[in-house]
Design a binder for these strands. Structure first.
Length: 229
DNA sequence: CGGCTTTGACCCGCGC
DNA sequence: GCGCGGGTCAAAGCCG
């Protein structure tokens, strides 16, 4: 079974809810930042639920985000004809194709994952090097909160930051925005699959090679994605 | 000087 | 057709 690994930064507990039929395997490692840890997921493992703070999102594989949650800022299925929605309803890239008259927001490389992480920080180190190439303002939160902490969060500008992997030849993109439904959360969406190892993983492998077996190796795509290339 | 961020402009698709 | 929103481009500026 092909395996795909993605990094998921987290500050206060990883927020995971598998959206695909495959279960996910989490392996947590410390970051260079003591306030962070990263988790790497792979198919075929059911993490003990008690170890995780449940989030509303983890979406992956085959290039389409599956989203049956009606309470999120990400697109709901009805926003995209045909039922397959994307993390961003307007992600109408010029590379997107029309299929049978139904616009499918298929991403290059065939994979999209989204992490919803409870964090004051919008930009978290996930081990890869990213270059920012765009920023767009979005509407403010529809649910303003009332205590000091939420006031602080709500005072932040709501915007969407666009990043590309700065590694040459790697076309993976990352979109970061604060969840407009709950501004204490940050939604990070990865588009595509890295064709190289993370510099961070090289460090990990040097330090504890047995503990991180090929965690950043991106093996062949899943059966779902084989039709999306 | 190179790499990165910022930011306004532009392109495109969609809904009305 | 037009306006709007999302995504990208690219020039300018910043910083180490």
């Amino acid at each position: 079974m092909p395996t795909i690994f993605y990094p998921c930064p987290s500050l206060s507990g990883l927020l995971v809810k598998p959206r695909s039929p495959t279960l996910l395997h989490a392996m947590d490692f410390p970051d260079e930042n003591p306030n962070h840890y990263h988790s790497y997921f792979r198919e075929g493992f059911d993490p003990p639920a008690t170890e995780f703070q449940v989030s509303d999102y983890l979406v992956l594989d085959n290039g389409f985000v599956e989203d049956d949650s009606s309470s999120q800022s990400m697109a709901s299925p009805e926003q995209v004809p045909g039922g397959s929605s994307t993390g961003y309803s307007g992600a109408t890239s010029r590379n997107n194709s029309m299929q049978n008259g139904v616009k499918k927001n298929k991403i290059e490389g065939g994979h999209r994952v989204a992490f919803r992480t409870k964090s004051e920080l919008e930009v978290m180190d996930d081990g890869f090097k990213w270059r920012k190439y765009g920023k767009k303002s979005v509407k403010n939160s529809p649910n303003p909160r009332q205590n000091d902490y939420f006031d602080f969060i709500s005072s932040l500008d709501f915007h969407r930051n666009y990043y590309k992997c700065s590694s040459g030849g790697c076309d993976v993109k990352k979109i970061v925005e604060r969840d407009r439904e709950d501004s204490t959360y940050v939604i990070t969406t990865y588009d595509g699959v890295h064709n190289h190892e993370s510099p961070c993983m090289v460090l990990y492998n040097n330090q504890m090679p047995m503990a991180v077996p090929q965690a950043w190796t991106l093996q062949d795509s899943s059966p779902h994605s084989s039709s999306s290339s």
